[in-house]
Structures are given as C-alpha cells and as structure tokens.
C-alpha cells in the first residue's frame, strides 16, 4: 500500500448539509461528517442510495440547490470549500482543484460535439496552453493520460461505448491537474468487467503524480454503492448511513480481517452475494425524520438501551456496541 504523506489534500470537519423544506422542517442529508483524504490515497464513501453520499459530493463542489444549508469545514489547498463563493468555486475549484468524474458519462458529455473539441475546450479553459497546434497536442495528451484511444477523438459521445465514454469523462476531469478527484458512482450501470477496468484506471490516476508537482499522486474520493468496486480500489472506507459516517476504516481490515466494526457495515458486507447474501432487516429511516438516538437501532441485532442516545461521530466507529477485533477473531 502507498506511503501516507502528512497534510491531507481534503480535510472535512463536521460537514453537515440540510435542506429547508416547505413547512419549515428540515431534511438532514449529511450530518457531522469528519474525514481526510491524502494524496495518493483513495477513500471510498459507501452507503445505500439516498443515504446522503451524493449530497456530500455536491456540497464539496458547491452545487447544492438553493434550499440547502451547510455547516462545518472542508479544507482543500488552504480554501474552505463550504465558505467559498460561487466565483471562487467556478474559477479556482471546479476542474482546477477538484476533477469530477461523473455518474453517467454519456450524459456528462455534450452530445453534439466531438470528444476532441470538448477536450480542447477544457484544455484552453483550465491550462495556460494557447494556440491551435499546442491545444491540439495538449488535448491528445489529455486523452492519452486517460487511455482514451486517439482514433476515437473525433467521435461524438453517442458513438462511444460505456467504457470509452467513461474514459473521455475521466480525461476531462484530469485536464486541470486537480489534486483531488471526485468520482460520483463512476461504475453504476457498467458491467462487471468494465467496473473492474474503470476502477483500475482510477487507481492508476491516484498513483500517478500530478504533472505540476512531483508529489505522490492525486487524492480520490469515490462515492459508490458497489462494495466490490470499493474493495478493489480503496485505501480507506467511509460508511455512510442515514446521513452520518458510521465507520471510517482501513480498506484492508474492513474487507478482510478483522472486518467492519459497525453492525451496519457488517450487515452491508454480509449482504453481498459472495458472502451471506442476507439483507439487513428493515429499511433506513427518512432523512427528514431521524430518530433521536442511533439511526440504525431499529435494524440492529445488538441494540440496547444505550442506543436511545446518539453515538458520537468523531471517532472511527459511531456505535455504542461496535464489534471488537478480539471478539471477531474468536
């Protein structure tokens, strides 16, 4: 595994997002999230759909709808993303500091323009490259970095397969040399082989140093519900449940031994077809109507009276009765 360099690229502290709904009540989409992502490291944020993962990503990019409110801090290169204004986000952050790898690349690309023209436009916008010939070369370089075949550059998005569209989108995300890559469900809808391929490509970008500095590589925050993909790529795993990070763990120990410590994480892993294939009973609570205590208590086998109080989210496991390594081995 990669060596961990000290200052994290992205440091999120107490990030919360809530939506003001008509009638004055709130939907707590993300509550009090703490995590760091270092250069050359991949953090996989996992959880089921609707748990708040994508909202967290939107918050980092400043793309929340107008009825959203944020709290906490998210430091990226000396800038607090949550406090930055739209102008700063547009001119300095998106593309330059955060490269977004979208969920559905086919929809992310402009359908009426070739991949080449979109890459060249992005190159012109984000880098200092100027002049037709050099922009063209830079565009081709960008494509090559994402392993996008040069022969397909003059095609339109609808002429590309899912895998190639994903690479084109990745190429666009890499152009600005952003230290942080944010991948929002990059593998959803792809078949297994393509998932593995996409994930391996992403891993390669994490390990490749950015062009500008001779550092240890990019940081990758990957949001996914695909545990198999997460296992393949991640150094660290953050599990989100009902808007809270319930567990942040090293990927090795999470997927291997001793395994996850939060009962929800264990249930999620256990539901995989290659493991027990047993669902966690019940469904997650509504983000607009969270219980006062632990949000997982109603579905949890280890529930006690203590679970009526909310476990602190500051540690690595937000649970009153986490599985302990020693009992897991036993």
């Amino acid at each position: 595994m990669t060596q961990r360099p000290e200052p994290p690229v992205l440091s999120v502290h107490g990030l919360s997002v809530r939506f003001l709904m008509p009638g004055g009540h709130h939907v707590a989409a993300v509550t009090d999230a703490h995590f760091d992502v270092a250069a050359g490291e991949c953090l996989a944020l996992i959880g089921e759909s609707g748990c708040g993962k994508s909202v967290l990503a939107s918050a980092l990019l400043g793309l929340l709808p107008a009825n959203a409110q944020t709290a906490g801090r998210a430091h990226l290169g000396g800038l607090d993303l949550l406090a930055a204004d739209e102008r700063t986000l547009a001119r300095q952050v998106r593309g330059r500091m955060i490269g977004l790898i979208p969920q559905s690349p086919a929809a992310h690309l402009t359908p009426v323009r070739t991949i080449r023209s979109q890459l060249e436009e992005t190159v012109g916008q984000l880098t200092g490259v100027w002049g037709r010939a050099s922009v063209r070369t830079a565009g081709e370089d960008a494509a090559a970095r994402a392993a996008f075949p040069a022969g397909h550059l003059d095609r339109y998005p609808h002429e590309l397969s899912g895998g190639l569209a994903q690479r084109a989108a990745t190429a666009l995300a890499l152009v600005g040399g952003a230290p942080l890559l944010l991948a929002d469900e990059p593998t959803s809808g792809l078949d297994r082989d393509l998932v593995e391929h996409t994930v391996d490509e992403l891993r390669r970008h994490v390990d490749t140093p950015t062009r500008t500095k001779g550092d240890t590589g990019r940081a990758l925050l990957m949001i996914t519900h695909d545990l198999t993909a997460a296992e393949r790529i991640a150094d660290k795993v953050a599990v989100m449940y009902a808007g809270r990070l319930v567990e942040v763990a090293e990927a090795d120990s999470f997927f291997g031994l001793p395994g996850p410590r939060h009962p929800y994480s264990r249930g999620l892993l256990g539901a995989l077809p290659e493991r027990d294939f047993t669902p966690i009973p019940g469904m997650p609570p509504e983000l607009g109507d969270l219980p006062a205590g632990c949000a997982f208590a109603t579905r949890c086998a280890r529930v006690t009276d203590a679970c009526a109080h909310r476990p602190p989210t500051t540690g690595s496991v937000a649970c009153h009765h986490p599985h302990r390594p020693e009992e897991i081995r036993a």
Partner: peptide, 14 residues
C-alpha cells in the same frame, strides 16, 4: 448535528 459539538453548527446558505 449536535453530537460532539457543544455550541451547535453554524448554518450557511447560498
């Protein structure tokens, strides 16, 4: 998001 913080979060809207 009250856990862990005494003074409660400061909400910002955009």
């Amino acid at each position: 998001p009250t856990a862990g913080t005494q003074d409660g979060p400061v909400w910002r809207s955009r």
